[in-house]
Amino acid sequence: MGADDAWAAGENVEQVTLLKQNEYVRLDASQLTALYHQLGEADAEDIVCRALEELAARLSHAERCYREGRLADMRKSSRSLIAIADQIGMRLLAQVAGDVTGCIDSGDHGALAATFARLLRIGERSLCEIWDLQDLPF
Results as ranks from 00 to 15, higher is better:
S106H: 12
A117T: 14
R26H: 11
C103W: 00
L92F: 07
D43E: 15
Q87L: 14
D43T: 15
R79W: 11
R79A: 05
A44G: 11
A51N: 07
T17V: 15
A113S: 05
G89P: 02
G40H: 14
S30F: 06
L39Q: 07
L112T: 00
G69H: 02
H61L: 12
I88Y: 08
V100F: 00
R50V: 08
D108G: 03
E45F: 13
R91F: 05
R91Q: 15
A44V: 05
A42F: 10
M74G: 01
A51P: 05
E124M: 08
A44M: 01
V16D: 09
A62C: 11
C103V: 01
Y36H: 10
L18E: 10
L71H: 03
C65K: 01
R26Y: 07
D108E: 14
L59R: 04
L92D: 12
A62H: 06
A72W: 02
A29H: 06
K20Y: 10
Q21R: 12
G123H: 01
L35M: 10
V25S: 10
L81N: 07
F116D: 00
Y36T: 02
H37W: 08
A97N: 06
G98T: 04
A111D: 09
D105H: 07
H61T: 13
M74K: 02
S30R: 14
E23H: 09
G40S: 15
D86C: 09
E124N: 15
I82Y: 12
